[in-house]
Computed example of a mutant assay.
Amino acid sequence: MGRDAALLKANVSRTLWLGFFRAFLVIMPVAVPFFQSKGLSMQEVFTLQALFAFVVMITEAPSGYLADLIGRRRCLILGTAFAGVGHSLLLVADGFWTLALFETALALSFSLTSGADLALLYDTELARGSSDRRQRQVVGKLYAVRTLSEAAAGVACSLLLLWVTLGGVVAAQVMVGWLPLLFALRLREPPVARLSAEGHLANMARIARHLLGGTLVLRLVFLALCIWSLTTFYAVWLLPKLWEQQSLGLAHFGYLWGGLCALSAVAGRWTHHLEERIGPTGVLAIMGLLPALGYLGLDRFGVVGGLLAASTFFIARGLGTVILTDALNSRVPSEFRATANSLASFGFRGLFVATGPPVGLAFDLWGLGTTLLMLAVLSLGIFAGLILPLIIAVRGLAAD
């Protein structure tokens, strides 16, 4: 094996480790209580997440485009550096505005790395001459690694809380926050075609035509990544309040979060196996209906029933993220793959900017039960208006 081949092979494990530590957020299971300990209301908590989404929204497409122009490795280095700085800001965070700086730094990190890591993995496998099946599997691997990291971080959070306060969890998060940079520095840029640095408007017009003016399946997949992803994302920020209302101790939050994330990782890792058994339309139907069922049952059957309902969001998240992301990446060329991934995230974040604060306000005004019912209706509407047409389009493609 030549030196270049060895370095490309190492890219796979290093990118996966980068993804693991980027998702290792020990603060996540107790983020809502931590924010509230700094004086924030639930509306302000959702507003912080909307701020995160807004910063990602305005930087996502430019950062993905930048990765396609100058290389994914350089963007990953810059993005992981922002992650380290952002997590370090937690040490001095106090009140809404200092937490807003933390969210802004993490948003910049997210936008610089979210499309670049997957594009680098996909293109590494292409450069190595891997089979189509192996190229498709990188989506499931990266998702599983990230989600297992979230699970491990949840357990670590609960273990830390046995001996330390929230401040100790924050300190651990700061230390872990710098680790992705170490792996980014050791990556190698795979040899792929890059976008021309001349004619930026022409480049963006070409990408937009490909995504929105191409095949119906690609167009609906892109829209599903933007819109359907919201159905599971709202639940992430409502679950801690549910557990709090059910009088579950704070130390249990990490275990619960870790178990749910592990379930999502397993679902993501086995998505392609399930797809081979029941077909892509079967997977789409399951992932499309599960969030609505989850919202309907989340607060109706006690703690155990609530956990079963919560699991539906994480199963749907695993199935949907992998099958939709793979469908997108297999239908776009390497030269603007990072931009395509970033544009999908741009759409999702933009929609959360518009809808996140109203969801938080609905919770503050009308309580959890009414908010969950509203989200169940919204999820069913997204299934009927977007996922069902995608299922019909995929069946039509198979018939041809």
Rank of each mutant, 00 (worst) to 15 (best):
residue 137 Q to T: 01
residue 192 V to M: 05
residue 95 G to Y: 11
residue 142 L to H: 11
residue 372 L to S: 06
residue 194 R to T: 11
residue 101 L to F: 15
residue 69 L to E: 13
residue 363 F to S: 01
residue 53 A to M: 08
residue 170 V to M: 02
residue 179 L to Q: 07
residue 279 G to F: 01
residue 148 L to M: 15
residue 105 A to N: 12
residue 66 L to W: 13
residue 184 A to K: 10
residue 235 A to F: 14
residue 294 G to D: 11
residue 388 L to R: 09
residue 391 I to K: 10
residue 233 F to G: 02
residue 277 R to T: 09
residue 347 G to S: 08
residue 308 L to D: 12
residue 159 L to P: 00
residue 86 G to A: 08
residue 255 Y to P: 05
residue 178 W to G: 07
residue 172 A to Y: 04
residue 67 A to R: 03
residue 137 Q to L: 07
residue 202 A to L: 08
residue 217 V to T: 07
residue 214 G to Y: 09
residue 190 P to V: 11
residue 49 Q to K: 03
residue 84 G to C: 05
residue 73 R to A: 10
residue 196 S to N: 14
residue 23 A to F: 13
residue 338 A to W: 01
residue 327 A to F: 02
residue 64 G to M: 04
residue 175 M to L: 15
residue 58 I to V: 15
residue 146 R to D: 06
residue 384 A to N: 05
residue 333 P to I: 13
residue 328 L to F: 12
residue 124 T to A: 12
residue 234 Y to E: 05
residue 108 L to D: 02
residue 64 G to A: 11
residue 229 S to A: 13
residue 192 V to G: 00
residue 24 F to H: 08
residue 335 E to A: 10
residue 55 V to W: 07
residue 64 G to R: 09
residue 99 L to A: 10
residue 52 F to L: 14
residue 255 Y to N: 11
residue 36 Q to A: 12
residue 335 E to H: 15
residue 271 T to P: 00
residue 274 L to W: 15
residue 271 T to M: 07
residue 23 A to E: 15
residue 150 E to R: 14
residue 207 I to K: 03
residue 312 T to P: 01
residue 256 L to M: 10
residue 81 A to P: 06
residue 306 G to F: 10
residue 23 A to V: 02
residue 147 T to R: 03
residue 287 M to E: 14
residue 361 L to V: 00
residue 259 G to M: 05
